[in-house]
Nucleic acid binder design. Structure first.
Lengths: 196, 196
DNA sequence: CGATATTGTAAGTGTTTGCTTACGCCTCAG
DNA sequence: CTGAGGCGTAAGCAAACACTTACAATATCG
């Protein structure tokens, strides 16, 4: 009998490194050679774990999203009677924005590939992302007066937009860290419950 | 004496086609071969007009931005006593969002290249973009009560964010046209003057 | 005309990149 | 032990790409 395959474990071991490379470099610049180098293996080993580069990227999309959501759930789990979960999330993003690499991978997938499968993966992930935020807004508003407020769906999209612009401005150095924090907290608050 | 060079005219003639190709396809997919084909010339003719592909892209960034601003100025120039300029702009974008290709070219430049010169061009352009919107917000609020409203800088970034998310959702088919229109008008209005 | 620079056409070059093949070593159940 | 499969290493292929070179045709203006 042959030795048992460790494909699954190896995949789990290398995926964080692969995802990190895609988030940092984008799709094209993360060449298979670079991916392999970062994983400290040879290219063809990656090809034994995934069918092609496209599959590596799709796995990375899911991985990065799950990582981000994991952190958000931790923030939500912190017991804090003063501030609600949604507010804590906003504050957390204002401080740690961009660290997950989520938006970088979205941008890369959107503009560097036109592969139907990648677009579908992005669509799915973005849908979950939006649903998560909308759920937080709903929880936040639960029991409060909501007349005159933005609909939850609209508010969730607008908050995702804040994240996008924060990402771009960070990458280009358009805002100071202070400015970006201010934008997140003030505009986020306004969208969340109508208070400037 | 030789015949006079028509380089300048030719550049102006081909730039719209080149920019259109970059906006549609992104940076890499708009290969020099494709660009030439769309211009109905041979590749090396493009290289007589611009030093390299990078220069073609930078010229396209400026061109697309100028085109977009030109349209916005037309919208602003329409005499309409009922609604202010900023409101008309928001409504216009809600209807015609994405047609200019501005955001597509920004995304392409951001995630497909790491060239310092391209990033600088994007930085400059984004700065002008933000300044333009901030100016419109200032005009809109001029003479009105502004206590309790978002600062102009923050509001302008948040509105740019609306544009970003509208672009992504359009590209992935995440929102209906109706939903996107609603998002633009409602969230835009809220950011503009605090009214839901 | 005629000298001269511009324009159009065509073929090619060197590099990068995704992906494959070939092959020998190692591991572990029977 | 043994041998069937997993594993690591290395070399290389075909395609795509940005960019170049060579050259003939053409238009301008003294």
């Amino acid at each position: 009998m042959p030795r048992p395959s460790q494909t699954h474990e190896k995949r789990e071991q290398l995926l964080p490194l692969v995802a990190q490379a895609f988030a940092e470099l984008g799709y094209r610049r993360a060449t298979t050679a670079v991916l392999a180098q970062r994983c400290e293996v040879r290219v063809n080993i990656l090809y034994r774990l995934w069918a092609d580069k496209k599959a590596m990227f799709i796995a990375s999309i899911d991985y990065v999203y799950e990582q981000a959501v994991g952190i958000w759930r931790e923030v939500l789990a912190e017991t804090d009677d003063d501030t609600g979960g949604a507010e804590r999330l906003l504050r957390h993003e204002a401080e740690h924005y961009g660290e997950s690499g989520l938006h970088r991978i979205i941008f890369a997938g959107l503009s560097e590939t036109h592969e139907p499968e990648i677009r579908q993966a992005l669509r799915d992930m973005y849908g979950r992302f939006h649903r998560f935020i909308r759920g937080q807004i709903a929880d936040h508003r639960d029991g409060h007066e909501t007349t005159g407020l933005l609909g939850e769906t609209v508010a969730a999209w607008a908050i995702v937009g804040l994240g996008n612009v924060a990402n771009i401005s960070r990458e280009l150095g358009l805002q100071t860290d202070r400015g970006r924090k201010k934008m997140f907290s003030q505009a986020g608050r306004l969208l969340l419950d109508g208070r400037g």
